[in-house]
Amino acid sequence: MSDEHIVSSFDEDMSRLRDLFLEMGRIVSSQIQAATRALRKEDRMLAKQVIANDKQLNRLESELNDLAIKILALRQPFAGDLRQVVATLKSAGHFERMGDLVRNSAQRTNTITKAEAETGSIETLVQMSETVQVMTNSILTAYERSDSEMAEEVRMQDETVDRLHNSLFREMLTYMMEDPRNISGCMHVMFMAKNIERMGDTVADIAKELIYMATGEWPEGSRTKKDKTSRIVIEPEADA
């Protein structure tokens, strides 16, 4: 739909809406990158920076909300335009939420780096975080190109994050059972992992919105959820 709208200020509003959304996405991506680096390098200053940057996302989201509401009220868009406004509005909310999760992760960086001594590598956390960042970058490209296939691939990638989360969960349980002094550190790692796992889910939610935006259809069925941690139960051994 490249044709110009009869009312050119309508096109301007729509293009401003897209720009705001892409800007939010790029900030989320760089926040994830910084938070990951802060974690790996035990860089507390960087972690603080990530926490401070989150305000930008909140500001952009509220600007985007106002613009989307203005477009809906004054322009009454239909068809592809309508889908774009609604999908963008909802996805911006998802980005804002991702921002909160990154900030929360950054807040834990300090405690995690201390816990690492007892729990071994944070490599899995880093890997999860990097995967989510890749997904975020792809979703921005998918949005710019209105590419539903690319969005579908992003939904699939979330399975990788879920699998890493599962294996980390099992690993942490083992540590905790080995020595109760590990529990505190492991719990922090698990909370952090859960944050990142949720970020992955949230990008997958955006992917769903984009598929609707591009095709007018919701993706078929719900994606099979590979995060199984909610069903893992470990019994202490009877003769312990």
Binding site: M1, F78, A79, D81
Partner: peptide
């Protein structure tokens, strides 16, 4: 929300 034909899409979206 999701017309099939491009001509419809164009007309209803102005």
């Amino acid at each position: 929300t999701n017309p099939e034909k491009e001509r419809t899409q164009n007309y209803i979206s102005g």
